[in-house]
Design a protein around this nucleic acid. Structure first.
Lengths: 134, 134
DNA sequence: CTCTGTGCAAAGCGTTTGCAAACGA
DNA sequence: TCGTTTGCAAACGCTTTGCACAGAG
């Protein structure tokens, strides 16, 4: 398990306190949008600029260290890149849950049937989560 | 098969020429983004305003007559609402292809395993399409 | 020491809003 | 005729850019 410091350096990105904080917040919260991230990081860096957030989110996304998840009917959220998975998005509480995806079989079929070489999948399942349906 | 004129009226929306043109363009092109739609519709309505496009796209989307598809790494496209399907998005030519989705079994499993009531699914599969891989 | 990153302010761009005139039903 | 829609211009909000200074390596 590498530290974010080491990971950043592997990507030739300087390990600034701001970047480390962003990575920590994103990874502990799981999924976070720009505003939430800004509010959270301001607790540590009182004078951080939104521009800094944007610049870093962009460079880290381009380097595939972070992933943008475009949600229907709400703002994009970001997560640290991990193995392929789908998202369960609750329309009531807004919570987003990762879901292991076991669709390799289906994707293989698609590759064959449509002669389509799959590089990536975005799967968002919207509905009502366990606690909200009580 | 209802005409768009009739469909609009069913939703209590006036069947203006602009709206009919939008529906025709969206349905014949399959998937279209705002700019493409604007360029296309200007051929018929030289003085149409972008604001009109936005207002109509929004009201028709809210009425579930149109659907917004948020694509990774590019602008949203719109389509006329039809039965559930997934999208194959080519990273080279940008073409978007509909794909019948046979994942009801999987979705049932999700409902059970995660106690999640599914209302909607967004599935975008990115990669390289048949003609671009030649 | 050098080059990258930060913070600020301004610019940019896509989208929305307000309003008067035009139009559909 | 009445309420909705259009087109225009202005406003808005989110994101990006330019630049001087600070900081990482």
């Amino acid at each position: 398990m590498n530290t974010y410091m080491e990971i950043l350096r592997q990507y030739d990105l300087k390990a600034t306190p701001q970047r480390l904080a962003i990575l920590n917040i994103v990874s502990t919260s799981g999924h976070v949008n720009i505003d939430e991230l800004y509010e959270e990081i301001k607790k540590q860096f009182h004078s951080i600029s939104l521009a800094t957030i944007y610049k870093n989110i962009n460079t880290m996304t381009e380097n595939k260290l972070l992933l943008e998840v475009k949600l229907p009917n709400s703002k994009s959220v970001y997560e640290v890149v991990k193995s392929r998975h789908a998202h369960l998005s609750c329309e009531i509480c807004g919570d987003i849950q990762d879901m292991s995806i076991d669709a390799e079989k289906i994707f293989k079929e698609i590759s064959n049937e449509y002669s389509f070489k799959i590089n990536n999948t975005d799967v968002i399942i919207s509905g009502i989560c366990k606690s909200c349906s009580k």
